[in-house]
Design a binder for these strands. Structure first.
Length: 665
DNA sequence: TTAGGGTTAG
């Protein structure tokens, strides 16, 4: 038998009846005085006087209105008044029944007042209600919240009541202490003992299984749910979905989801979020559409969960429609949904819209600021990013966490602010891998390739592909082909199954006139069955996404697009920069510039979008040097802004310049 | 009396 920890004796100050008599004789007096942070003693007395008048009107013969009053006060967060009401019940001799005690215990919990909780426990024992199921569950919760889970377990074991509520409460406490295994063990024990299992206990154990990533335990709980006919209780179903996702089996989750007879907005949101996390953005958007066509109206959480998908595939039209939905339906604009909106706008290329949402936010949290800093770097607006970071530093309500520092380092990298970047890096107490990679990116993109190499050695990042790729970016910007080649070799050693490394290698050989070597690596890619991602670019127009591959002639307007591009190239007298030595696409090298996917998508934008707005294109690889130069010239010739998002950042081409370049360099 | 979904990077 477990014993109650010594720190938590049940304290019975005065027997309840005697205490009531005593209080009545000597006039009303607080049950006990515990200084509260926000309650001044004087206020207590005044409150008591005011409250007494209210209490005089409540009949002492009936506990029901008293219980209701405690519950209402508790629900409204008037904890102090709830305690007062309980005190008055005792003082006036109102019968404290089995409905009063759980409410009094909840009051103690809400007040964080363990001595009060123990006193109420004493009252329950004295009044003979300590074995009542409602009281036991409330006691378990009170001890678990205010003392420790061991004392809660002691209460659970001591009383013979083993209903699903007391079990769920104890399991919840185990989860709060990050001990999911104990919750699962307890569930198995309850099943063995033949105790009643309800939907809440199932939901709770499924959370525990998910935390443990234990598909085995989760499947067992699923079996029990099926046996009990609770599998399709919406709470249980949604918990099952989540369990399968957390255990890494999206397949099981999807299969279960398909068989669910009733799905609600939570079921959809759970699965949408899972797809987003897996990078399956189109699937998440399709699911969202399916939810709407099933007649379920999106709410703020469901919108927040799908917005990251819109941002990542630059589906700005979809993102803006979601923003409109929120406005039209007058849904709550809380920080979570506002942050998701800002992030979507940043990633879709609408910096100004993100700024607008940010400006309208009443309460900005750490995520809001970080989204702005990171978003600015994505758009090459490093100075603005640093400005937001300063704003974050001055906001006393937010903490500067690792993500915020990473964002500001990226802001420094995007505008090559080496001094500032070093200053921020030195401010970080324990730099993490991400910070170090951002530092490599800052040094390398600023042309300090020796320093970047030394930094890699100092922080032992030689075997970290992300750090090497950051160094390679610098080599690409500053045409350091020799160092670049060494980095590519290192990447091939580290990730021998990553086809993109071999594409880099064969491009390097092809550029330096070593066709045999280039051929060798291309054959090697084929022999190994590796499939490098082919390059694609896409553009939204009139509710449709138009996608183009390299040398694509399948689009109905292909002829017109090529013609347009050739005219422009001639007019601009573009001397294309055809250095592919450190480029990450194979097929582009042997294709004329006018056939590159980003050029075709931009041409489509030019011939289809008559108005003078920006042309927005997304590419699934890096933009090649040749296209980069050509688009600068086209933006000047056509007097239009062209925005290309590649895998690294946004390129805003305006009047012959690109946002990714620093004029002084 | 106990319970299920949302935002930032990589």
């Amino acid at each position: 038998m477990e014993s109650l920890p010594s720190s938590s004796p049940i304290h019975l100050p005065v027997p309840l009846v005697e205490q009531t008599l005593l209080e009545n004789t000597n006039g009303p007096r607080p049950l006990r005085i515990t200084p509260q942070e926000n309650v001044q003693p004087l206020g207590r007395i005044r409150n008591s006087v005011i409250a007494r008048k209210v209490f005089d009107e409540i009949p002492v013969s009936d506990s029901l209105p008293w219980n209701r009053r405690i519950e209402t006060l508790l629900r409204n967060g008037e904890i102090r008044n709830a305690i007062l009401t309980y005190e008055q019940m005792l003082l006036r001799g109102v019968r404290v029944d089995r409905h009063t005690l759980p409410r009094a215990l909840a009051t103690a919990r809400a007040a964080g007042d363990f001595p009060l909780g123990k006193q109420v426990h004493g009252h329950a024992l004295k009044l003979g209600h300590a074995s009542d199921p409602y009281v036991v569950s409330s006691l378990i919760e009170m001890y678990g919240s205010l003392d420790c889970v061991e004392s809660a377990r002691w209460v659970f074991n001591k009383f013979p009541v083993r209903n699903p509520v007391s079990w769920s409460v104890l399991a919840k406490l185990y989860l709060a202490e990050n001990k999911p295994k104990l919750a699962v063990d307890l569930f198995n024990k309850m099943v063995k003992l033949g105790s009643q299992i309800d939907s809440v206990s199932l939901g709770t154990v499924l959370v525990a299984c998910g935390r443990m990533r234990s598909l085995h335990d989760g499947r067992y709980a699923h079996q029990i749910a099926r046996k009990l006919g609770l599998e399709f209780d919406i709470f249980v179903s949604n918990s099952l979905l989540r369990m399968y996702i957390e255990c890494g089996s999206l397949k099981d989750a999807q299969a279960f989801f398909s068989g669910m007879p009733g799905k609600d907005v939570i079921s959809y949101t759970t699965l949408i979020q899972a797809h987003v996390k897996m990078g399956e953005f189109n699937d998440s958007l399709k699911l969202f559409q399916q939810m709407v066509s099933d007649g379920i109206s999106p709410d703020p959480p469901s919108v927040s969960s799908v917005l990251p998908a819109c941002g990542r595939i630059t589906a700005s039209k979809c993102g803006r429609e979601l923003h409109c939905h929120l406005l039209r339906k007058e849904l709550e604009f809380n920080p979570k949904v506002q942050n998701a909106l800002m992030d979507m706008y940043m990633k879709s290329g609408f910096l100004e819209y993100a700024l607008k949402v940010f400006g309208e936010m009443k309460e900005k949290d750490a995520v809001s600021w970080t989204v702005m800093v990171a978003g600015c770097s994505l758009h090459g607006e490093g100075n603005l990013g640093v400005h937001f970071f300063s704003g974050m530093e001055q906001d006393p309500r937010v903490d500067l966490d690792g993500l915020a520092y990473n964002a500001v380092l990226q802001a420094c990298a995007s505008s090559r602010m080496v001094g500032k970047g070093k200053y921020y890096f030195n401010q970080i107490r324990a730099p993490e891998l991400g910070h170090c990679i951002s530092m490599v990116s800052l040094l390398a993109s600023s042309g300090l390739l020796d320093e970047a190499t030394a930094f890699i050695e100092k922080w032992k990042l030689e075997r970290t592909p992300e750090a090497l790729r950051a160094l390679l970016d610098g080599c690409r910007i500053h045409r350091e082909d020799k160092l670049g080649k060494r980095v590519i070799d290192q990447l091939c050693d580290l990730q021998p199954l990553n086809p993109e490394n071999y594409v880099l290698l064969l491009n390097w050989y092809a550029h330096f006139d070593k066709p045999d070597m280039a051929r060798k690596y291309r054959e090697m890619i084929l022999d190994m069955g590796l499939k490098p991602r082919r390059a694609f670019s896409w553009i939204e127009h009139r509710n449709k996404v138009h996608a183009f591959g390299t040398g694509d002639v399948s689009h109905p307007r292909s002829q017109r697009l090529y013609w347009e591009l050739e005219q422009l190239m001639e007019k601009a007298r573009i001397s294309a920069d055809l250095d592919y030595s450190l480029h990450d696409v194979d097929e582009e090298r042997e294709c004329p510039l006018v056939g590159h996917s980003e050029m075709l998508a931009v041409a489509f934008g030019l011939v289809s979008k008559e108005s003078g707005g920006a042309i927005r294109v997304t590419k699934n690889h890096r933009i090649c040097n040749g296209c980069h130069g050509a688009l600068k010239a086209i933006s000047r010739l056509k007097g239009r802004e062209v925005i290309v998002k590649d895998t690294r950042c946004f390129h805003h081409f305006r009047d012959g310049f690109c946002s990714c370049e620093v004029p002084s360099l």
